[in-house]
Design a protein around this nucleic acid. Structure first.
Lengths: 355, 355
DNA sequence: CTGTTAGCGCTTTCAC
DNA sequence: GTGAAAGCGCTAACAG
């Protein structure tokens, strides 16, 4: 067999053969040999801020270009203990109904030189295996826009993997978290609806395991109580379009006392609700029924809907999440941080005076 | 300093300390020491189908569990020359308007033990750097649901990175490709529209660099010519909702001779079109205007739209793409393959007799 | 500034 | 069936 580290070519090989010698990619040794320098010199040339003379750098880069050499990130990660990989967890739901988030996160991460190892999760059991995978791949951090159990979070902590939660958190654990607090906007929205004369409200919850959905409905309920609204009916949804329509039906079983205003824990359900109201119950929106949502997804502003909703500043939130994870990939022992963003009311045409 | 490979503990360390010794994760050496076997034995226990005695396996797995040992995928990749990483390229557009694709691909890939290194691309220049990144991370393959230039594809080939195209291909290159051929459904759709008495058609194209959009419109045009339809007006769109509305305006500048049927290169534009028709031009759909699309995205079947469209069998297409890339990650030199799926007409309520 | 050297944690011959 | 030893491609002290 050939000697170690390919210090010399096998005799039958042309001296300046193609970069891919027998399908093998060029290594820093190949570049070093061609440039007539040491292998570590090559390494330095690819490390930003290393001390190399201009002459050397030039020769090395020329040789590297000729061989189409690019440092092997895997080998680098092995020794530096930094993979430059960040695991991103999104639930199937989020990805389908709010794809902007994943897209923005990926974009921002790539700006700071981090790659996305994508995981989609549908249940807590999935998350279990995701954590093992992330661990095996030595990720520098994890951004979770999906539910994790406390045990799973503790495991991550124990393994010193920095975690940033996106729009979810634990009440009994300090964590890094980026989220949107819609409190002020909820209050303004409720005030407006009450001023419009609404007295019977329907609230459509998110899935049971979802903090954000829960919190939103809680804020709405509290605001309503502050305005002395007593007739509040809550029904369960699961963030899907279909569940929005089903929930509306449930709220309207007694047409005489049906709500005149409905607030949904997310936009997707609000759209389902609007469609059900118009096409099945034959109600006009907003004249017969006011509907509002949360998120500010692109679709909610389509002409068929023009939903009044509370938007999250997704762009800034994604930037914040990435900045936090990048900082902790660099210095793992930073203390936890919460970054809370305000929402903003997106004025649509889905709310009006009570009928 | 401590001796190489941590064969012995520093004296100040407790014998059975925590798995994370000073934040370091357990290695196969740690497990070997605890189990009283050689390091290579540990390695074998984690390799499926290796020859290990039951007794040994048991001891090793017990030690591994105690130390929470999981093999380091990075180090493994370095030696096996397989990273188990697959680069997935999606364009911002695709991700936003057709998130199902990314979701399904990720799911299927994880079933065969491959991880997704996600890249989002908006221009060909982005693709350039993505390819370098993918190369640096030694990906076992690349699935591209985004545009690549010929030069970029050739580079990938030269580097022996298996590539599977999702819904795009080159006319002058043989490639691995999964795509949907809607020919038969286009023909059926056009036939139906002609039978409904439509004689003036409007066609809304996709972005200029997009093969699929181009092909769809070409198929429509050919079918129309076969049915001797002469009045065809094509306008440019870019697959976005907004561009659908704008295109409709352009098609209707002369109300007297406006098209009575419109076919859009994708669903998202068709939705924009429907909304523009209803809310701005005050046309009824389908009575005043028939509209059809391509894709079969979830949203197209919302009650506000019920678009008649030609659906792609996304689930099966994603399975096929993953099977192809997995096979080529295993045996890189397999010949190219094209897997073509038929579309299916999704019956909505957006087409009817010509006014 | 440059080269030498020692590993990162793993898989894989090769003897035994 | 098991252990010893080599080495994947790279970075990081350390000398010079």
């Amino acid at each position: 067999m050939a000697s170690g580290r390919q210090k010399d070519n096998p005799p039958d090989e042309a001296p300046n053969s193609l970069p891919l010698i027998r399908g093998r990619r060029a290594t820093s040794y190949d570049v070093a040999r061609l440039a007539g320098v040491s292998q570590s010199a090559v390494s330095r040339c690819f490390k930003p801020g290393a001390s190399v003379s201009g002459k050397m750098r030039e020769r090395v880069l020329k040789a590297a270009e000729e061989l189409e050499y690019q440092p092997n990130a895997i080998a680098r990660g092995l020794i530096t203990q930094r993979s430059n990989l960040v695991a991103v967890l999104v639930s199937g739901r989020l990805n389908l109904y709010y794809p902007e988030v994943l897209f923005r996160l990926t974009d921002e991460l790539s700006k700071v030189g981090l790659r996305v190892l994508l995981f989609t999760v549908d249940s807590e059991d999935d998350a279990e295996s995701v954590i093992e995978q992330a661990w095996q791949f030595q990720v520098d951090g994890l951004i979770s826009a999906s539910h994790l159990s406390r045990a799973q979070y503790d495991l991550l902590q124990k393994r010193s993997i920095p975690v940033v939660f996106f729009n979810r958190y634990f009440t009994d654990r300090s964590t890094n978290v980026v989220y949107c607090d819609p409190r002020a906007q909820v209050d303004a929205l409720v005030e407006r609806l009450v001023e419009f004369g609404h007295r019977r409200f329907g609230l459509i919850r998110g899935p049971k395991d979802n903090m954000v959905g829960f919190e939103r409905i809680r804020l709405v309920t509290e605001a309503l109580q502050r305005y002395r609204v007593a007739e509040i009916r809550e029904v369960q949804g699961d963030f899907t379009y279909d569940s929005g329509g089903a929930a509306l039906q449930e709220l309207c079983v007694h047409p005489a006392t049906r709500p005149t205003a409905i607030i949904c824990a997310n936009d997707m359900m609000a759209l389902g609700c609007m469609d059900e109201a118009r096409s099945v119950l034959e109600l006009n929106i907003p004249d017969d029924l006011s509907i509002a949502g949360f998120d500010g997804i692109g679709m909610s502003q389509f002409a068929s809907y023009e939903l009044t909703t509370i938007r999250q500043p997704i762009g800034r939130m994604c930037q914040a999440a990435v900045a936090m994870i990048a900082a902790r990939a660099e210095l793992p022992d930073q203390s936890n941080e919460r970054r809370v963003f305000e929402g903003a009311i997106l004025e649509g045409r889905s709310i009006a005076k009570a009928p």
